[in-house]
Design a protein around this nucleic acid. Structure first.
Ligand SMILES: [Zn+2]
Ligand SMILES: [Zn+2]
Ligand SMILES: [Zn+2]
Ligand SMILES: [Zn+2]
Lengths: 159, 159
DNA sequence: CTTGACCTTAGATTTAACTCTAAGGTTTAT
DNA sequence: ATAAACCTTAGAGTTAAATCTAAGGTCAAG
Protein backbone atom coordinates (compact mmCIF):
# COMPACT_ATOMS: atom_id res chain seq x y z
CA UNK A 1 0.00 0.00 0.00
CA UNK A 2 1.27 3.38 -1.00
CA UNK A 3 0.33 6.83 0.08
CA UNK A 4 -0.04 9.24 -2.80
CA UNK A 5 3.44 10.68 -2.40
CA UNK A 6 4.99 7.24 -2.29
CA UNK A 7 3.29 6.08 -5.44
CA UNK A 8 4.13 9.36 -7.10
CA UNK A 9 7.80 8.97 -6.28
CA UNK A 10 7.78 5.33 -7.30
CA UNK A 11 6.41 6.13 -10.74
CA UNK A 12 8.04 9.52 -11.13
CA UNK A 13 4.90 11.61 -11.40
CA UNK A 14 3.58 14.41 -9.24
CA UNK A 15 0.90 13.87 -6.62
CA UNK A 16 -1.10 16.46 -8.52
CA UNK A 17 -0.99 14.19 -11.51
CA UNK A 18 -2.39 11.28 -9.54
CA UNK A 19 -5.24 13.42 -8.22
CA UNK A 20 -5.80 14.68 -11.74
CA UNK A 21 -6.00 11.10 -13.06
CA UNK A 22 -8.46 10.29 -10.31
CA UNK A 23 -10.63 13.29 -11.11
CA UNK A 24 -10.69 12.13 -14.71
CA UNK A 25 -11.58 8.56 -13.91
CA UNK A 26 -8.30 6.95 -14.86
CA UNK A 27 -7.06 5.81 -11.49
CA UNK A 28 -9.00 5.74 -8.24
CA UNK A 29 -7.53 4.07 -5.19
CA UNK A 30 -10.00 1.65 -3.67
CA UNK A 31 -9.21 2.66 -0.11
CA UNK A 32 -8.81 5.68 2.04
CA UNK A 33 -7.45 5.77 5.55
CA UNK A 34 -9.75 6.97 8.34
CA UNK A 35 -8.32 10.41 7.93
CA UNK A 36 -9.01 10.41 4.23
CA UNK A 37 -5.56 9.68 2.85
CA UNK A 38 -5.57 7.79 -0.43
CA UNK A 39 -4.09 4.30 -0.16
CA UNK A 40 -3.00 2.75 -3.44
CA UNK A 41 -2.62 -1.00 -3.83
CA UNK A 42 -0.11 -2.78 -6.02
CA UNK A 43 -2.93 -3.23 -8.47
CA UNK A 44 -3.41 0.53 -8.58
CA UNK A 45 0.31 0.87 -9.20
CA UNK A 46 0.03 -1.55 -12.13
CA UNK A 47 -2.85 0.44 -13.51
CA UNK A 48 -0.77 3.58 -13.25
CA UNK A 49 2.04 1.86 -15.12
CA UNK A 50 -0.44 0.88 -17.82
CA UNK A 51 -1.40 4.53 -18.10
CA UNK A 52 2.20 5.66 -18.31
CA UNK A 53 3.07 3.05 -20.91
CA UNK A 54 0.13 4.11 -23.01
CA UNK A 55 1.18 7.72 -22.65
CA UNK A 56 4.67 6.73 -23.73
CA UNK A 57 3.38 5.56 -27.09
CA UNK A 58 1.37 8.70 -27.67
CA UNK A 59 -2.15 8.04 -26.45
CA UNK A 60 -4.14 10.87 -24.89
CA UNK A 61 -5.69 10.42 -21.48
CA UNK A 62 -9.13 10.07 -23.04
CA UNK A 63 -7.85 7.26 -25.25
CA UNK A 64 -6.10 5.67 -22.31
CA UNK A 65 -9.37 5.69 -20.39
CA UNK A 66 -10.88 3.75 -23.28
CA UNK A 67 -7.98 1.31 -23.38
CA UNK A 68 -8.31 0.76 -19.64
CA UNK A 69 -11.99 0.01 -19.89
CA UNK A 70 -11.32 -2.42 -22.72
CA UNK A 71 -8.59 -4.02 -20.68
CA UNK A 72 -10.99 -4.61 -17.81
CA UNK A 73 -13.56 -6.17 -20.09
CA UNK A 74 -11.44 -7.87 -22.69
CA UNK A 75 -13.84 -10.65 -23.53
CA UNK A 76 -16.31 -8.17 -24.92
CA UNK A 77 -13.83 -6.65 -27.26
CA UNK A 78 -12.01 -7.91 -30.31
CA UNK A 79 -8.40 -7.63 -31.41
CA UNK A 80 -9.80 -5.52 -34.23
CA UNK A 81 -11.01 -2.93 -31.74
CA UNK A 82 -7.69 -2.66 -29.98
CA UNK A 83 -5.63 -2.67 -33.14
CA UNK A 84 -8.00 -0.12 -34.60
CA UNK A 85 -7.16 2.30 -31.83
CA UNK A 86 -3.46 1.74 -32.32
CA UNK A 87 -3.74 2.20 -36.05
CA UNK A 88 -5.70 5.41 -35.72
CA UNK A 89 -3.10 6.76 -33.35
CA UNK A 90 -0.39 5.61 -35.70
CA UNK A 91 -2.02 7.53 -38.53
CA UNK A 92 -2.27 10.65 -36.37
CA UNK A 93 1.34 10.37 -35.31
CA UNK A 94 2.45 9.83 -38.88
CA UNK A 95 0.48 12.86 -40.03
CA UNK A 96 2.06 15.00 -37.36
CA UNK A 97 5.49 13.71 -38.30
CA UNK A 98 4.83 14.58 -41.91
CA UNK A 99 3.90 18.13 -40.92
CA UNK A 100 6.98 18.49 -38.77
CA UNK A 101 9.18 17.02 -41.49
CA UNK A 102 7.87 19.72 -43.75
CA UNK A 103 8.77 22.33 -41.14
CA UNK A 104 12.16 20.74 -40.73
CA UNK A 105 12.96 20.77 -44.43
CA UNK A 106 11.87 24.37 -44.77
CA UNK A 107 13.79 25.47 -41.72
CA UNK A 108 16.87 23.66 -42.87
CA UNK A 109 16.66 25.37 -46.23
CA UNK A 110 16.35 28.74 -44.50
CA UNK A 111 19.18 28.02 -42.12
CA UNK A 112 21.49 26.80 -44.86
CA UNK A 113 20.94 29.90 -46.92
CA UNK A 114 21.92 32.29 -44.16
CA UNK A 115 25.55 32.99 -43.31
CA UNK A 116 24.73 33.38 -39.63
CA UNK A 117 27.40 36.02 -39.27
CA UNK A 118 27.53 39.25 -37.29
CA UNK A 119 26.61 41.42 -40.24
CA UNK A 120 23.43 43.42 -40.57
CA UNK A 121 20.36 41.43 -41.43
CA UNK A 122 19.47 43.92 -44.13
CA UNK A 123 20.14 41.33 -46.79
CA UNK A 124 19.43 38.22 -44.78
CA UNK A 125 18.07 35.53 -47.03
CA UNK A 126 15.84 34.19 -44.27
CA UNK A 127 13.98 37.45 -43.93
CA UNK A 128 13.84 37.78 -47.69
CA UNK A 129 12.30 34.37 -47.97
CA UNK A 130 9.64 35.21 -45.41
CA UNK A 131 8.91 38.48 -47.15
CA UNK A 132 8.49 37.03 -50.59
CA UNK A 133 6.43 34.33 -52.06
CA UNK A 134 9.14 32.43 -53.87
CA UNK A 135 9.49 28.78 -53.06
CA UNK A 136 13.23 28.70 -53.22
CA UNK A 137 15.40 30.56 -50.79
CA UNK A 138 18.06 32.75 -52.27
CA UNK A 139 21.39 31.83 -50.79
CA UNK A 140 23.63 34.54 -49.46
CA UNK A 141 27.02 34.37 -51.12
CA UNK A 142 30.46 35.60 -50.31
CA UNK A 143 29.86 38.92 -51.94
CA UNK A 144 26.51 39.55 -50.42
CA UNK A 145 25.61 43.07 -49.54
CA UNK A 146 26.06 42.95 -45.83
CA UNK A 147 29.79 42.56 -46.22
CA UNK A 148 29.94 46.28 -46.86
CA UNK A 149 31.37 47.14 -43.46
CA UNK A 150 35.08 46.40 -43.51
CA UNK A 151 35.37 47.09 -39.78
CA UNK A 152 33.41 44.02 -38.95
CA UNK A 153 34.47 40.48 -39.41
CA UNK A 154 33.34 39.23 -42.76
CA UNK A 155 30.21 37.23 -42.88
CA UNK A 156 31.29 33.65 -43.14
CA UNK A 157 29.33 30.52 -43.00
CA UNK A 158 29.30 28.97 -39.57
CA UNK A 159 30.50 25.41 -38.96
CA UNK B 1 -7.69 48.47 -49.54
CA UNK B 2 -9.45 45.47 -48.09
CA UNK B 3 -12.14 45.15 -45.53
CA UNK B 4 -11.45 42.48 -42.96
CA UNK B 5 -13.60 39.90 -44.71
CA UNK B 6 -11.93 40.56 -48.04
CA UNK B 7 -8.42 40.17 -46.67
CA UNK B 8 -9.52 37.09 -44.78
CA UNK B 9 -10.87 35.50 -47.93
CA UNK B 10 -7.82 36.54 -49.93
CA UNK B 11 -5.46 34.86 -47.49
CA UNK B 12 -7.76 32.04 -46.45
CA UNK B 13 -8.05 32.87 -42.80
CA UNK B 14 -11.04 33.78 -40.63
CA UNK B 15 -11.86 37.34 -39.73
CA UNK B 16 -11.57 36.19 -36.14
CA UNK B 17 -7.98 35.30 -36.81
CA UNK B 18 -7.20 38.76 -38.15
CA UNK B 19 -8.75 40.39 -35.08
CA UNK B 20 -6.83 37.94 -32.94
CA UNK B 21 -3.57 38.86 -34.65
CA UNK B 22 -4.39 42.52 -34.12
CA UNK B 23 -5.12 42.01 -30.44
CA UNK B 24 -1.76 40.30 -30.12
CA UNK B 25 0.16 42.99 -31.95
CA UNK B 26 0.98 41.07 -35.09
CA UNK B 27 -1.08 42.94 -37.63
CA UNK B 28 -2.88 46.24 -37.12
CA UNK B 29 -4.44 48.01 -40.07
CA UNK B 30 -3.33 51.63 -40.21
CA UNK B 31 -6.79 52.88 -41.12
CA UNK B 32 -10.37 52.62 -40.09
CA UNK B 33 -13.37 53.95 -41.99
CA UNK B 34 -15.51 56.62 -40.32
CA UNK B 35 -17.77 53.88 -39.06
CA UNK B 36 -14.89 51.97 -37.56
CA UNK B 37 -14.36 49.26 -40.16
CA UNK B 38 -10.78 48.07 -40.45
CA UNK B 39 -9.18 48.91 -43.80
CA UNK B 40 -6.11 46.89 -44.70
CA UNK B 41 -3.53 48.13 -47.20
CA UNK B 42 -1.51 46.00 -49.56
CA UNK B 43 1.33 46.41 -47.12
CA UNK B 44 -0.85 44.92 -44.39
CA UNK B 45 -1.61 42.05 -46.72
CA UNK B 46 2.11 41.49 -47.24
CA UNK B 47 2.65 41.50 -43.51
CA UNK B 48 -0.09 38.91 -43.14
CA UNK B 49 1.58 36.77 -45.78
CA UNK B 50 4.84 37.06 -43.85
CA UNK B 51 3.00 35.80 -40.77
CA UNK B 52 1.46 32.92 -42.65
CA UNK B 53 4.76 31.91 -44.21
CA UNK B 54 6.44 31.94 -40.82
CA UNK B 55 3.60 29.86 -39.43
CA UNK B 56 4.06 27.46 -42.31
CA UNK B 57 7.60 26.69 -41.19
CA UNK B 58 6.57 26.15 -37.61
CA UNK B 59 7.08 29.42 -35.76
CA UNK B 60 4.72 30.34 -32.97
CA UNK B 61 2.93 33.66 -33.02
CA UNK B 62 5.22 35.00 -30.31
CA UNK B 63 8.24 34.09 -32.41
CA UNK B 64 6.62 35.58 -35.48
CA UNK B 65 6.10 38.83 -33.59
CA UNK B 66 9.83 38.84 -32.93
CA UNK B 67 10.65 38.08 -36.55
CA UNK B 68 8.37 40.89 -37.67
CA UNK B 69 10.03 43.38 -35.39
CA UNK B 70 13.43 42.27 -36.64
CA UNK B 71 12.22 42.59 -40.20
CA UNK B 72 11.15 46.18 -39.58
CA UNK B 73 14.49 47.07 -38.08
CA UNK B 74 16.89 44.88 -39.99
CA UNK B 75 19.88 47.13 -39.76
CA UNK B 76 20.01 46.68 -36.01
CA UNK B 77 20.08 42.92 -36.24
CA UNK B 78 22.60 40.45 -37.52
CA UNK B 79 22.24 37.38 -39.67
CA UNK B 80 23.35 35.51 -36.56
CA UNK B 81 20.22 36.63 -34.73
CA UNK B 82 17.89 35.53 -37.45
CA UNK B 83 19.65 32.27 -38.14
CA UNK B 84 19.73 31.68 -34.40
CA UNK B 85 15.96 31.78 -34.24
CA UNK B 86 15.67 29.42 -37.16
CA UNK B 87 18.18 27.02 -35.65
CA UNK B 88 16.44 27.01 -32.28
CA UNK B 89 13.16 26.25 -33.98
CA UNK B 90 14.86 23.59 -36.05
CA UNK B 91 16.14 21.96 -32.87
CA UNK B 92 12.68 22.05 -31.33
CA UNK B 93 11.09 20.59 -34.40
CA UNK B 94 13.74 17.89 -34.59
CA UNK B 95 13.19 17.02 -30.94
CA UNK B 96 9.47 16.73 -31.46
CA UNK B 97 10.03 14.57 -34.52
CA UNK B 98 12.28 12.32 -32.49
CA UNK B 99 9.59 11.92 -29.86
CA UNK B 100 6.95 11.18 -32.45
CA UNK B 101 9.25 8.75 -34.22
CA UNK B 102 9.55 6.91 -30.96
CA UNK B 103 5.76 6.81 -30.69
CA UNK B 104 5.54 5.66 -34.27
CA UNK B 105 8.00 2.82 -33.84
CA UNK B 106 6.29 1.66 -30.66
CA UNK B 107 2.85 1.85 -32.18
CA UNK B 108 3.98 0.02 -35.27
CA UNK B 109 5.41 -2.75 -33.15
CA UNK B 110 2.15 -3.00 -31.25
CA UNK B 111 0.09 -2.95 -34.40
CA UNK B 112 2.22 -5.57 -36.12
CA UNK B 113 1.93 -7.94 -33.19
CA UNK B 114 -1.86 -7.92 -33.16
CA UNK B 115 -3.88 -9.98 -35.59
CA UNK B 116 -6.61 -7.35 -35.75
CA UNK B 117 -9.24 -10.04 -36.11
CA UNK B 118 -12.73 -10.34 -34.72
CA UNK B 119 -11.69 -12.60 -31.87
CA UNK B 120 -11.86 -11.70 -28.24
CA UNK B 121 -9.16 -9.39 -27.01
CA UNK B 122 -8.52 -11.67 -24.05
CA UNK B 123 -5.14 -12.57 -25.45
CA UNK B 124 -4.44 -9.45 -27.45
CA UNK B 125 -0.76 -8.77 -27.53
CA UNK B 126 -1.31 -5.03 -27.51
CA UNK B 127 -3.10 -5.14 -24.19
CA UNK B 128 -0.53 -7.55 -22.86
CA UNK B 129 2.24 -5.20 -23.82
CA UNK B 130 0.56 -2.30 -22.05
CA UNK B 131 -0.04 -4.42 -18.98
CA UNK B 132 3.50 -5.63 -18.65
CA UNK B 133 6.84 -4.03 -18.47
CA UNK B 134 8.61 -5.98 -21.16
CA UNK B 135 10.22 -4.03 -23.91
CA UNK B 136 9.40 -6.48 -26.64
CA UNK B 137 5.87 -7.17 -27.71
CA UNK B 138 4.88 -10.78 -27.86
CA UNK B 139 3.48 -11.55 -31.25
CA UNK B 140 0.16 -13.33 -31.50
CA UNK B 141 0.57 -16.43 -33.60
CA UNK B 142 -1.76 -18.60 -35.59
CA UNK B 143 -2.49 -20.82 -32.66
CA UNK B 144 -3.07 -18.07 -30.17
CA UNK B 145 -5.66 -18.57 -27.54
CA UNK B 146 -8.41 -16.48 -28.95
CA UNK B 147 -8.86 -18.85 -31.82
CA UNK B 148 -10.71 -21.09 -29.44
CA UNK B 149 -14.14 -20.33 -30.83
CA UNK B 150 -14.63 -22.33 -34.02
CA UNK B 151 -17.89 -20.51 -34.78
CA UNK B 152 -16.07 -17.32 -35.48
CA UNK B 153 -13.82 -16.64 -38.40
CA UNK B 154 -10.29 -17.45 -37.46
CA UNK B 155 -8.10 -14.61 -36.39
CA UNK B 156 -5.94 -13.87 -39.39
CA UNK B 157 -3.55 -11.08 -39.99
CA UNK B 158 -5.10 -8.23 -41.89
CA UNK B 159 -3.60 -6.94 -45.16
C1' DC C 1 4.03 20.29 22.09
C1' DT C 2 5.74 21.99 18.17
C1' DT C 3 8.10 21.56 13.71
C1' DG C 4 8.10 19.75 9.26
C1' DA C 5 6.66 16.61 5.98
C1' DC C 6 2.88 14.88 4.47
C1' DC C 7 -2.11 14.83 3.26
C1' DT C 8 -7.08 16.96 2.06
C1' DT C 9 -10.36 19.99 -0.90
C1' DA C 10 -12.11 23.19 -4.44
C1' DG C 11 -11.05 25.93 -7.75
C1' DA C 12 -7.88 29.05 -10.53
C1' DT C 13 -4.06 29.27 -13.81
C1' DT C 14 -1.12 27.85 -17.56
C1' DT C 15 -0.10 27.41 -22.90
C1' DA C 16 -1.40 28.28 -27.91
C1' DA C 17 -4.12 29.73 -31.20
C1' DC C 18 -7.94 30.35 -32.12
C1' DT C 19 -13.29 30.15 -32.11
C1' DC C 20 -17.56 31.52 -30.58
C1' DT C 21 -21.29 34.43 -28.43
C1' DA C 22 -24.12 38.35 -27.67
C1' DA C 23 -25.71 42.58 -28.74
C1' DG C 24 -25.65 45.80 -31.82
C1' DG C 25 -24.16 49.21 -35.96
C1' DT C 26 -23.30 49.67 -41.41
C1' DT C 27 -23.70 48.83 -46.35
C1' DT C 28 -25.65 47.31 -50.40
C1' DA C 29 -29.08 45.52 -53.21
C1' DT C 30 -33.82 45.12 -54.33
C1' DA D 1 -37.38 50.35 -46.54
C1' DT D 2 -35.94 46.15 -45.41
C1' DA D 3 -33.25 42.03 -45.71
C1' DA D 4 -28.78 40.05 -46.32
C1' DA D 5 -24.32 40.35 -45.64
C1' DC D 6 -21.13 42.66 -43.60
C1' DC D 7 -18.85 45.02 -39.63
C1' DT D 8 -17.99 46.41 -34.33
C1' DT D 9 -16.87 45.24 -29.21
C1' DA D 10 -15.89 42.67 -24.97
C1' DG D 11 -15.46 38.66 -23.19
C1' DA D 12 -16.15 33.59 -22.70
C1' DG D 13 -15.10 28.90 -24.34
C1' DT D 14 -12.12 25.24 -26.45
C1' DT D 15 -8.33 21.56 -26.00
C1' DA D 16 -4.92 18.77 -23.13
C1' DA D 17 -2.62 17.81 -19.28
C1' DA D 18 -1.27 19.25 -15.88
C1' DT D 19 0.26 22.73 -12.22
C1' DC D 20 -0.57 25.87 -8.69
C1' DT D 21 -2.99 28.23 -4.74
C1' DA D 22 -5.26 28.71 -0.45
C1' DA D 23 -6.76 27.08 3.64
C1' DG D 24 -6.53 23.65 6.42
C1' DG D 25 -6.06 18.51 8.63
C1' DT D 26 -2.61 14.45 10.05
C1' DC D 27 1.39 12.22 11.65
C1' DA D 28 6.10 11.06 13.39
C1' DA D 29 10.20 12.80 15.62
C1' DG D 30 12.52 15.24 19.09
ZN1 LIG E 1 24.56 36.88 -44.00
ZN1 LIG F 1 21.10 35.83 -43.02
ZN1 LIG G 1 -5.58 -11.58 -32.25
ZN1 LIG H 1 -4.71 -8.30 -30.68
Amino acid sequence: MYRIGELAKLCEVKTDTLRFYEKHGLLSPLMRTESGYRMYTEEDAERLRFILRAKAVGFTLAEIAELLSIDLDKSNWACADVKGMVDIKLAQVSAKIAELNHFQVSLKRLSDACCGGPESAEHCSILEALESNSAEVKRENHTHQHQNNPNKASCKRKG
